[in-house]
Design a protein around this nucleic acid. Sequence first.
DNA 1: GTTGACCTTTACGCTACGTAAAGCCTTATG
DNA 2: CATAAGGCTTTACGTAGCGTAAAGGTCAAC
Lengths: 252, 252
Amino acid sequence: MEYTVQQLAKLSGVSSRTLRYYDEIGLLKPARLSSSGYRIYGQKEVDLLQQILFYRELEVSLEDITGIIHHLDFDLITALQQHVQKLQEKHDRLEQIISNVQKTIASKEGGTPMADQEKFEGFKKKMIDENEQKYGREVREQYGNQVADDSNAKMMGLSEADFKRMNEVEKEFLEELKKAYETGDPASPEAQKAVGLHKEWLSFTWPQYSKEAHAGLGDMYVSDERFTAYYDRHIAGGTVFLRDAIHIYAAK
Amino acid sequence: MEYTVQQLAKLSGVSSRTLRYYDEIGLLKPARLSSSGYRIYGQKEVDLLQQILFYRELEVSLEDITGIIHHLDFDLITALQQHVQKLQEKHDRLEQIISNVQKTIASKEGGTPMADQEKFEGFKKKMIDENEQKYGREVREQYGNQVADDSNAKMMGLSEADFKRMNEVEKEFLEELKKAYETGDPASPEAQKAVGLHKEWLSFTWPQYSKEAHAGLGDMYVSDERFTAYYDRHIAGGTVFLRDAIHIYAAK
DNA sequence: GTTGACCTTTACGCTACGTAAAGCCTTATG
DNA sequence: CATAAGGCTTTACGTAGCGTAAAGGTCAAC
């Protein structure tokens, strides 16, 4: 049983271009060439192709398939396990994205009136812009680009409901901070509760919380006049107090 | 507020190459060029970029983003709905693939002994090979490549359990066909029950059943000596009887 | 011997950039 | 003011897995 490219193509359902490509990358070479240079495939190649197509169906890359097919010492199980893990990640990511697209559709469709929607988008964008313009560099330098990017991505992905909740938490936090400030003690239960709310607030936009990052943020608050102005507007001297409270919280 | 590429890149977390690329494809052009040809971006471009990145997070293609961003008459909702549908399909396909990879791992790991496994794989392969070698062309000509390919894909995706069940159904079918043949009437309840089993058997490998395809297959059975030999080996004259029964079944 | 189907190689196109290479511009420093 | 460091520019190749010509040789049938 010998086949030319077209014959094998029809037999297997792939295109002749694909077979030439597989030859080119060394995945499946013909048994021999005819006197005029035609590719001639034998039964062995048909069997190999079936195996190749089997793994291709599983979305294994041709490079990995080459490993599986040609090297008998290739660790198939491990390769497949890694493969399934990659597929799982893709799968989970897709789920998240689908949810976000649906949220976007819902809000654009008028679950919230367009005016609010635009304002909401605009506000989110403005927050991110300001965030980046003022602190982007520091955050990036201290915690790497990934964190800053993830933070933005997370912010962008917030639903309007989450966003409202986030603002409520911030309000709660500011009230608790005020009460705590009146005690004068950054280690007081009130102060520590306030820091807890601060952490909760951060978690809306932080891809993952860490005490070190939290403490670093506290320092940034004090050394940056924009934050100082913001917190001191609510509670005079509140920024330094908050930093101290965060440090105590983080040291626990 | 004006930015050069690098500045905007740092601000937004994308690479300068990406910004140049977005310029190149007309997705995001700088506000102006400096006297020395540097790209200069303004606040408007920063805002646009945020929107672009928002949709990019949702895995919308840059082409579609271009439509969304630049054409106000672009139907955003419809585009997003189509997008979410594509994502859903990808999602479902991934689920299927993951399941198949896991099945492969399980069987390779020795859920079934390697000998059986190999035999199983070998048998499936052989069936597909024979199928294709003998009938591939006809099926492809009559019902298009998609059907034949899907059939193979489905066959490849059969679990060993499905495969066993498929063989049981075939055995049942042959027994019923024998009983039916003894009545001598292709329209008899026995004959029609046999055809029903034949349909069930086909459904293991057919991507989707249709009466026309079923009838066509019946004709193929008669005109092809390999099928004739196969069915007549079980029941002498059975092939023609089966064809007639199928035609009656399909005409209902 | 001529048609028509099949074969060959070469090579560009697709997505969304990463990664040099070669050379001009700007800013800081000695 | 010269020089070095760093940012900017354009050009262009590489990625995965083929689709799709283009230009030309081969083979079986009439």
